[in-house]
C-alpha cells in the first residue's frame, strides 16, 4: 500500500478511483503517563509519553484506513490528511482519511 499526501503517487499514474477511505481511533491517556506529564508541566519540555501515545494511535488510524482501502481493491491512498481532536478530558481522536486509488 502506497500512501501519499499529494494528489497522485509521484512517478506513477492513477488508473482507477475508489472514493474516500477513513480510519480513526479514540485513545485515552495512561494514568502513569499522565502523572509524568503533570510533572513535566512544571518544568516544560517534551511530553514523551504523549508523543509516543499519539504516534501509536495515528499509526493505528492509518492501518485502519489502509485495511479499508485494501478491501475495496485499491493499492494506494492519495491526498492523505490527518486530524486530531480531543473529544473528552484525557481522550483524543486521531483520524486519517484519503482517496483510495489504483496505480499501475
Amino acid at each position: 500500500m502506497i500512501l501519499s499526501n499529494t494528489e497522485n503517487i509521484p512517478g506513477k499514474t492513477i488508473q482507477e478511483f475508489y472514493g474516500v477511505v477513513t480510519g480513526s481511533t479514540v485513545r485515552a491517556k495512561h494514568i502513569g503517563r499522565d502523572i509524568m506529564a503533570g510533572f513535566k508541566n512544571i518544568v516544560g519540555g517534551e511530553l514523551k509519553g504523549y508523543t509516543e501515545l499519539l504516534n501509536e494511535a495515528r499509526q493505528e488510524a492509518v492501518e485502519r484506513m489502509e485495511a479499508q482501502a485494501k478491501s475495496v481493491g485499491a493499492n494506494a491512498v492519495v491526498n492523505v490528511r490527518f486530524t486530531t481532536s480531543s473529544v473528552a478530558q484525557g481522550a483524543a481522536e486521531l483520524f486519517a482519511y484519503g482517496t483510495a486509488v489504483k496505480v499501475e
Binding site: 506529564a37 513535566k40 508541566n41 512544571i42 518544568v43 516544560g44 519540555g45 517534551e46 511530553l47 504523549y50 508523543t51 499519539l54 504516534n55 495515528r58
Partner: peptide
Amino acid sequence: SVVISVDY
C-alpha cells in the same frame, strides 16, 4: 510529531 508543554 511532538507533544510539548510550557513551564509553570
